[in-house]
Simulated scan of single mutants.
Amino acid sequence: MSDSTTKLSAVIVDDEPLARRGLRLRLEKLRDVDIVAECTNGREARERILELQPDVAFIDIQMPGISGLELVRDLPPEQLPQIVFVTAYDQYAVEAFEINAVDYVLKPIEEERLAAALERVREKRASADIANQREQLLEAVAGLTNESPLELEQRLAAGDLGGSQYPEKIAIKDAGKITLVPAREIDWIDAAGDYMCVHAQGETHVMRITMKELEQQLDPKSFQRIHRSTIVNLERVREICAHINGEYYLVLNNGERLKMSRSYKNKVQHFL
């Protein structure tokens, strides 16, 4: 591992190619990080981390298969690198990570926040016992879920905390502030170029994120894509109207009409 005067060796773990590329480009700009591996899933990441023993691992929390939390649990404590979670959790998670000295970077990633995370990594490496990182991570997540670390440990061992966890609130950052929108209050979401418009309770919140990244934060039991640029809350749909060209229109409780394209018409079953 590197010392405080050399580059930090880093592993990026994210199942999304665009997310990995974006993080890599930002880390390369900072010039004091050597990216030794990029991994697409938890199983691959475990092997590479044990092989390369990096100083820091940037880990997406929500991944199919082995989640970021499960990955950290599975790593031997004595070989656990510094962990920086890449997450879209709300302010309660942010507070938990801050208090427990386990850092995070919110998507979409900002360079200043990333630089601050790396500075904290260096500070912790100079003073912290790396073998205790796992316990700190459990305490951080326990603070988020209102469970004891022991209860969380038991749930992780039982496989109850996987990639199916969805935040109750969506964190929308704009003009230096973060607005927390409860997912259950969202009516629908549509794309406007590189931005997503989140419509909830008569208000429209704009966030810079890809449709796919935002879709991964939403429980598919409640939210479904009905168009390449539209996601709808199933509980808000009042009527389904067939159109002569094979498309459908969905009428929401607030009277809004949304087009369901032909390529998504198989989603009608979710409304029935």
Rank of each mutant, 00 (worst) to 15 (best):
R228Y: 04
R208H: 15
P167H: 11
L180R: 02
F97H: 05
Q165I: 14
S229N: 13
Q79C: 12
K177Q: 12
Q133D: 02
A19W: 04
A158P: 03
N146K: 13
E70K: 07
I189P: 11
E256Y: 03
H270L: 14
I49V: 15
G22S: 14
H243Q: 14
D32H: 13
L272P: 01
Q201F: 00
G22Y: 08
V105N: 06
R20M: 10
E256I: 10
M207Y: 00
I12G: 09
K259W: 11
S2N: 12
K212D: 06
S263V: 10
E213R: 06
D55C: 06
K265L: 00
A96C: 09
A142C: 10
E123F: 01
K173E: 13
K259F: 13
F271K: 05
Q62R: 15
G162T: 13
V237N: 04
E70I: 05
F85R: 01
F223S: 04
S229G: 12
R113K: 15
I83G: 05
A10P: 05
R31V: 09
Q201P: 00
M63L: 06
A192C: 10
G159S: 04
Y104K: 02
E110P: 00
H270Y: 14
D14A: 01
V84P: 10
T145H: 05
L106N: 09
Y195K: 02
L137P: 00
R262Y: 08
G163I: 01
P77R: 09
V141Q: 03
L30K: 08
R24D: 08
R48P: 00
T6V: 09
R257P: 00
V121L: 01
G255E: 13
D60Q: 08
R43K: 13
A131G: 06
E168R: 15
G255V: 04
P167W: 11
A192H: 15
R236W: 04
V84C: 08
T204S: 14
V72D: 06
S263W: 04
V181N: 01
D74Y: 04
I178K: 02
L80H: 04
G159R: 05
K212A: 13
A183L: 07
D187H: 12
K221L: 11
Q217F: 03
K259Q: 14
S4Q: 12
Q136K: 02
V94L: 08
G202I: 07
G22H: 09
Q133S: 11
L69H: 07
I226A: 03
G246A: 11
E70V: 10
Y89R: 02
L258V: 12
G22N: 13
K259C: 08
P220S: 07
S261V: 05
L8A: 14
R43S: 15
R155N: 13
T5P: 00
T230A: 07
V181H: 02
R73L: 10
L106Q: 14
L118D: 06
Q224A: 02
M63K: 13
D34P: 02
I178C: 06
E185H: 14
R225E: 13
D3W: 10
E203K: 10
V36T: 13
L75D: 12
K212L: 11
E235P: 00
I172P: 01
R134H: 07
C241N: 11
I189C: 11
H205C: 05
E123D: 11
K221C: 02
H227C: 09
E168Y: 00
E78T: 14
N254K: 06
